[in-house]
Simulated scan of single mutants.
Amino acid sequence: MIKSILKLGLCVAGLGVILARPAVSATFDFSTTLPKPIDMLQASSIKDGQDGGQVRERITVTDGVDSKFLSPWFETAYWEGGLGPEYTAVGKGASAAYEFSDLYSSVSFLWGSVDEKQQVRFFQGDEPVYVLNSDLLLKNGAPEKTGFVQITIFTQPFNRIEFYSQNNSFEFANLRVSAVPLPAALPLYAAGLLVLGLIGRFRKFAK
């Protein structure tokens, strides 16, 4: 009986490790097909850079003076009279984070003028899940420092996304998590079902 209990404990512990294990890879695809604009989400938290880089949310213009930020909608069909749909610009050293109450496995957004050393970071709670570097996007044919790409990233479940730039401003629009959400308590449900099944099996053998 003691051996059975020990086996049960090991099974549950093993399941917990598997379900809690963070991802080490992800996939993505992108195109230069212009999407229809959607309302931008408000960041859950923002952090300005030490060198003066700022996060500018829901802006509709392009910086024509210092060229610090360029709208991803610039010179598209939705650009008119020096204005375009809303977008967010994350300056050098700054970051913008978006938190969700559920777990998701993909995100899509319009990425403007892809530049070196820009990152999209994924987290589940405080645990890192994946980091997509813009350099990888450029190696796969994304236009550099001009235009835009519409990108979709698929990765392990996350509930927080962080946009960060070590270089020029990171501009993006149309941010949305489009995958079917996974309940945050799903691992607990799965572990509970396994435990109940194993208990029933041991009771059967005990008889």
Rank of each mutant, 00 (worst) to 15 (best):
V131G: 08
K139H: 03
S105L: 04
S169A: 15
I151P: 03
G84C: 11
Y98A: 06
K139G: 00
S44M: 04
P22V: 04
E127F: 07
V120G: 14
W111R: 09
R121V: 13
P181V: 07
R56E: 15
F154S: 11
I199S: 00
L103K: 12
L138G: 03
L6I: 10
T76K: 07
F172T: 04
L103Y: 13
N168D: 07
A96M: 11
F172S: 04
V24K: 14
Y87I: 07
D48A: 03
V114A: 04
L194W: 02
F148A: 08
L70P: 11
Q156E: 15
I153K: 02
L175W: 03
L138K: 01
F28M: 02
W79H: 09
C11V: 13
G82V: 07
Y104A: 02
G52L: 00
G84R: 11
Q150D: 15
F163S: 12
A23K: 09
R58I: 10
L198K: 00
A179F: 01
L198M: 04
G16T: 04
L182N: 10
L8H: 12
F170Q: 12
L193V: 01
P35M: 03
A179N: 03
N174I: 02
E162W: 09
E57L: 06
A20Y: 08
G147A: 09
M40G: 14
Q50V: 15
Q118E: 15
T60I: 06
E144R: 05
I161K: 11
A43I: 15
